[in-house]
Design a binder for these strands. Structure first.
Lengths: 129, 129
DNA sequence: TTCGACACTTACCTTTTTGTGCGTACTTCC
DNA sequence: GGAAGTACGCACAAAAAGGTAAGTGTCGAA
């Protein structure tokens, strides 16, 4: 029933982000894309519906949000619960794995926001030259 | 001499990553782009020359590496020292700010690599359905 | 009764990103 | 004496990402 995981174990090579086809690169992309970050952080405060997320992450299009959500779902970071009622009702929440991931990206984002002033100053200095 | 920082202070609004034009989004992009990550992590082990970086970050083109480096330099994360000798000699290293940033992204990357197996399993489960 | 909300999907088009190849000015290695 | 290495910049092409608009089916509100 369960597929033999031979290929899987080959693909998982720790510490090889440097190699071209390391699957970590894909996960990194999902997790750190702008919309990925926003979704992950937003879901920390609890379950959200599609349109809630859309309203909170200003500027995201429906297409991008759907795509982002699907990526994060496939990676096992978000859980999608669809209630088959007539006006569709779908709820998104973080899985345990997703909660870990989101705390990582949150701390990165917090650092960026805390140090944003310094970065902006550095940028200005460059412009002056 | 120093420019008045009026505009700067306006631009720095903490906790507003959700808004469309928050400058944090740009920093996030620089820091979490694949090549940005690789450069930041590689430079943790010390100063590197352009072609050293190119060799270590497998798959990066010269153009992309140059672009990445310029972005990180502008943000104040890397320091560029050019020795005006005849075969060009340029050294890149992390600034103190860059060292902080790189430790953030390193912990994110470490988490991803440590949990990669679980992610791959989640992906496989999706495929089976 | 027409409109908007819901959670998407699809097709099409534009924008952005990235790759490729070339040129540079000079040195060292073979 | 030809090739390779150095750290890029530039022009063009290819690829990927993203935006826009429309359609789905049913309900409740105006």
């Amino acid at each position: 029933m369960a597929k033999p995981a031979t290929k899987l174990s080959e693909q998982v090579r720790r510490g090889e982000l440097y190699t071209v086809d390391c699957p970590s690169r894909g996960v990194l992309k999902h997790v750190t894309s702008l919309w990925g970050v926003l979704v992950l952080i937003t879901l920390r405060s609890g379950t959200h519906r599609f349109s809630d997320l859309r309203r909170k992450a200003k500027g995201v299009s429906e297409k991008m949000l759907a795509q982002t959500l699907q990526g994060l779902e496939a990676d096992g970071f978000v859980d999608r619960k669809s209630h088959p009622v007539v006006p569709p009702h779908v709820e998104y929440s973080l899985t345990p794995l997703g909660r870990e991931a989101s705390s990582q990206v949150e701390s990165l984002v917090d650092w960026i926001e805390a140090n944003l002033y310094q970065v902006m100053q550095a940028r200005q200095r460059k412009q002056e030259i």
